[in-house]
């Protein structure tokens, strides 16, 4: 099966501003997830060192820095590609995130995240994350609640 994950969202901002906030304010909008911690320690603050030779790093409370990945494509305001590694990955294990910013409608942007490369992470490693079905079902439930809430708000706007 494909190990590609694609998630898209439409925002009320031009691509240039969406790109800027995505990069410069990632420390403010990123939501750490215990299933995808970069290191075994408490999550730190994410920060992009911008530019074609830049990188995405996590800085922990004590000041230690973990490099999540180098920037592999830098094409503001339309495209950004960066590596995405957890501390437990071996050098051969590597995933990649592509973020695209496409103008749609009047002053709006579709932001699409495509996260690939999880097939480079052996099944045994993935299995060690442990995804008991109760956790999965809880997460799916939360996800649907978010979707339905957004749908409800949208529908209310049209009334």
């Amino acid at each position: 099966m494909s190990s590609r994950v694609v998630v898209a969202i439409r925002v009320k901002a031009a691509p240039a501003r969406a790109f800027e906030v995505f990069v410069s304010e990632i420390g403010l909008w990123w939501r750490p997830n215990p299933l995808f911690s970069f290191t075994p320690r408490a999550p730190g603050v994410l920060h992009f060192e911008p530019g074609p030779d830049g990188r995405l790093i996590e800085t922990r409370a004590g000041g230690k820095v973990f490099e999540i990945g180098k920037i592999r494509a830098w094409a503001p305001p339309h495209r950004l590609v960066f590596g995405f590694r957890q501390a437990t990955f071996t050098p051969e294990q590597d995933t990649e995130v592509e973020a695209t910013f496409e103008a749609v409608g009047e002053g709006e942007t579709r932001v699409t995240i495509t996260h690939t490369g999880w097939d480079s992470v052996p099944q045994a490693h993935v299995a060690r994350h442990g995804f008991p079905s109760t956790v999965l079902l809880t997460r799916l439930g939360e996800w649907w609640r978010t979707l339905l809430s957004a749908y409800k708000d949208k529908e209310a706007e049209q009334e």
Partner: peptide
């Protein structure tokens, strides 16, 4: 469902949650 499939669903959920926060930040009144 395989562990990989479960992980990818959880990963999609994690990205969705962060992107919703990104959208909220981007669209907040200045």
């Amino acid at each position: 469902m395989s562990p990989m499939a479960q992980m990818l669903i959880a990963l999609a959920y994690a990205w969705r949650r962060s992107l919703e926060a990104f959208k909220a930040r981007l669209e907040q009144p200045s």
